[in-house]
Simulated assay, not measured.
Amino acid sequence: HQHNTAKSQAIITAATGGTAGRQRGSAKKVESKYILPKPQKTDAPMLNYIFDTFSTANKHHHHDQRYGPHFEDVQRVGQPTNMTVQAGSSIHLNCRISLLQDKTVSWVRRNALGENALDLLTVGLHTYTGDKRYKMEFQYPNNWRLKITNVKKDDEAMYECQISTHPPRVIQINLFVNAPKVMIVDEFGDPLQEKYYEIDSTLQLSCVVRNVAMATSVVYWKHGVDVLNYDVTRGGISVKTELMDDGANSTLSIAKINKSDSGNYTCAISDFQNFTIVVHILNGESFAELHHGAAAPTVPSAFHQQLVVHCALLSLLLLLLLLHAPHQPYTLVHR
């Protein structure tokens, strides 16, 4: 009986010990599963910062932007935005920032001359460029927008809105300017600088506008500062304009012109987009008289033109007679 009892206790002890062993083994296995490597530390604070950042990068990656200054338009970060505007217009470049805290917002322009050709435009609410067309125009609550007035073709560049973090956070905007072409042209389509008319004739000027939608716009004609489109006092003035999707063709006609019709004529679609030529009205004067005695050919009248033609015909006739005249033999006389 004692033998059987001891045997039973041994079996129980063995079973208990085995179970405990298995439990300890299991506990060891579970504990080892959650053991993490100790973060690496060095004597260099910046490296410690990098290691700490790296060790938590995967764990908190989707929360990083919530705890510091960041752009609201996340899709614009790292991907330049293209923006096309019309020359002469006023525009805003938006830059919405959340949780700016103690950081500063700056706008810079990266010129086409090279990557390092940067122009500082604004810092905070202050404008640092000498060009008065540029201005920081903050829009509550968080839009640090850059305003550009009367945009020109030269304003084409890459613009960057920067937050003064380390390294700086940046969004980029590629600005493209669609500059219309406005020209007063001759019958061949070449631009004119000045034009001459005789008194009592009809003045006719042609203006072409390109690279701008003109479906709802107007082409203005001016003599000096006077708008001719709606002139009802002078009489004999006609303005005909063909508007197109990409421009316009406009013609100004003035009947029975006189000396008072000379001067500057301007074709315009805005205060900043125009083209001006000088019109001279002649009453038999010569170019030399017109230019204060400068040597220049006279303006041929109808009589002068006929006289030139008759002289040319007579010269041609004489040349033909000489060519067809009989040749006389020459005789040498010895004395």
Results as ranks from 00 to 15, higher is better:
Leu93Asp: 04
Ala294Lys: 14
Tyr128Ala: 04
Pro69Ala: 15
Asp261Cys: 04
Ser206Leu: 12
Phe54Trp: 09
His70Trp: 11
Leu321Gln: 13
Glu242Phe: 05
Ser217Gln: 13
Arg109Met: 15
Lys135Tyr: 09
Leu228Cys: 06
Asn211Ser: 14
Thr56Arg: 11
Leu118His: 09
Asp200His: 14
Phe303His: 09
Gly78Cys: 08
Leu146His: 01
Lys153Ser: 12
Ala112Lys: 14
Lys33Arg: 15
Ala294Gly: 05
Asp52Trp: 07
Leu320Thr: 11
Asn178Arg: 14
Asp231Ala: 10
Phe287Cys: 08
His60Gln: 08
Asp245Phe: 08
Gly247Lys: 02
Asn116Val: 03
Lys153Ala: 14
Gly18Arg: 06
Asp231Arg: 09
Pro297Cys: 04
Pro297Asn: 07
His291Lys: 10
Ser250Arg: 02
Ile12Tyr: 10
Asp154Arg: 08
Leu125His: 08
Thr53Asn: 11
Ser55Arg: 12
Pro329Trp: 01
Gly236Glu: 09
His292Pro: 00
Pro168Asn: 12
Pro168Phe: 01
Ala213Leu: 03
Ala179Glu: 15
Thr122Asp: 05
Glu285Met: 08
Gln2Lys: 11
Thr16Phe: 09
Arg22Lys: 13
Gly88Leu: 07
Val30Cys: 05
Gly293Val: 05
Lys59Met: 10
Ala325Leu: 12
Asn94Ile: 02
Gln328Thr: 14
Phe138Met: 10
Asp190Gly: 04
Asp52Tyr: 09
Val123Gln: 13
Val218Tyr: 04
Leu93Lys: 02
Gly224Asp: 06
Ile257Arg: 00
Leu36Lys: 13
Val123Lys: 12
Arg24Asp: 11
Ile12Met: 07
Tyr34Pro: 00
Val212Arg: 08
Ile237Thr: 05
Ile277Phe: 02
Asp154Ala: 15
Val227Asp: 06
Ser250Ile: 03
Pro180Ser: 07
Thr276Gly: 03
Ile35Arg: 12
Pro168Ala: 10
